[in-house]
């Protein structure tokens, strides 16, 4: 009972329990030989999911229908353009970062312009825009694979006291997102809009401004994630964002945030991102082929979501 009560106020606990369990099972197969390596890999890859997941979480918190499907395309465009601009030169690092963030912010503004001015539902508006953004990326890239500046490449693959640098960046962003969601006036407003748009309007919340800011934040984080990922993998690729479409949504949902909006949490995103990576490693360790691996991944995700929602029912 105390356990149930504890999980009721901490919906993110399930994602962490699942991540730790999967980690344990994987390590059991190798008799503990690769624990540190696996943990490091998990934190590295989870970091990228967390960065886009945080943005998606804020958008989903805005309430039913709000979602950003342009994340993969934004990542790709930000990665290709900024790497091309830097062209491997150390002096261009700062402009490169600014361009990546700027591209994200522009995509965010365009997303909200389509949603607001043309009254297109977010799911269609962001998907439509993502085709335009992706095509722009193809046009600027033209099959070139530009290497990132040396210092950036070593930073994004390096570690500090054993912790991957990208995980530190994602960790700092997570803390900032937690403060924004739980402690700031802006977070209050997002949550209010997610619960009831008409009520938020009547309560004097500047609804349009808050929604715009949220879409811009989400796309800017996608731009940053694209930049870091292309530095990490030694160059931008046109399909590098593809898997993040599902992942960005999955980490929010598995992390225990409400898909209906208004009620989100930050810690669950880390738990879910680690879990998603570890499930694949576990199945690899046990020697499953690609097909069964995907099927099992699907089943495990469903099981975790079911466990989390059963928790919600008993608590009520």
């Amino acid at each position: 009972m105390t356990f149930l009560r504890m999980t009721a106020s901490r919906p993110w606990l399930w994602a962490w329990i699942a991540a730790v369990a999967v980690f344990g099972i994987t390590i059991a197969a190798t008799a503990g030989a690769s624990a540190a390596g696996l943990a490091q890999a998990a934190f590295t890859f989870a970091a990228f999911s967390v960065i886009v997941g945080l943005g998606q979480m804020f958008v989903i918190t805005l309430g039913p229908g709000n979602i950003d499907l342009s994340i993969p395309a934004t990542m790709t465009l930000a990665g290709t353009v900024s790497l091309k601009l830097m062209d491997g030169q150390e002096a261009m690092i700062l402009p490169g970062i600014l361009v990546a963030l700027g591209i994200g912010a522009c995509v965010g503004v365009l997303n909200y312009t389509l949603i607001r001015a043309l009254r297109i539902p977010p799911i269609i508006a962001t998907l439509a825009l993502s085709f335009i953004v992706q095509s722009t990326a193809i046009w600027t890239n033209r099959g070139l694979r530009v290497k990132p500046p040396e210092s950036l490449a070593s930073f994004s693959t390096g570690t500090l006291w054993g912790v991957p640098n990208v995980a530190i960046v994602a960790g700092l962003l997570t803390i900032a997102a937690w403060v924004l969601l739980e402690r700031s006036g802006h977070g209050r407003r997002i949550s209010a809009i997610g619960q009831s748009l008409p009520a938020a309007r009547r309560a004097g919340i500047p609804v349009e401004g808050v929604r715009l800011a949220t879409y811009v934040l989400c796309a800017t984080l996608a731009g940053l994630c694209g930049f870091l990922l292309s530095c990490f993998s030694g160059g931008a690729a046109l399909n590098m964002g593809a898997e993040f479409l599902l992942v960005s949504i999955a980490v929010v949902v598995i992390g225990g945030s409400s898909v209906a909006g208004g009620n989100s949490n930050v810690p669950g995103i880390w738990g879910a991102a680690l879990f998603l990576f570890l499930v694949v490693s576990m199945l690899n360790t046990y020697g499953f082929g690609a097909g069964p691996r995907l099927i099992l991944t699907g089943f495990i995700i469903i099981a975790v979501i079911l466990a989390a929602s059963a928790r919600g029912r008993t608590a009520a």
Partner: peptide, 24 residues
């Protein structure tokens, strides 16, 4: 306001249909 919160709000509203546009 639609886009920016005013430091000094000009108006406040008490909803009648509290389910629809009142409580969170």
């Amino acid at each position: 306001p639609e886009w920016r919160a005013h430091a000094d709000p000009k108006v406040a509203y008490v909803a009648g249909d509290r389910r629809l546009d009142g409580v969170f």
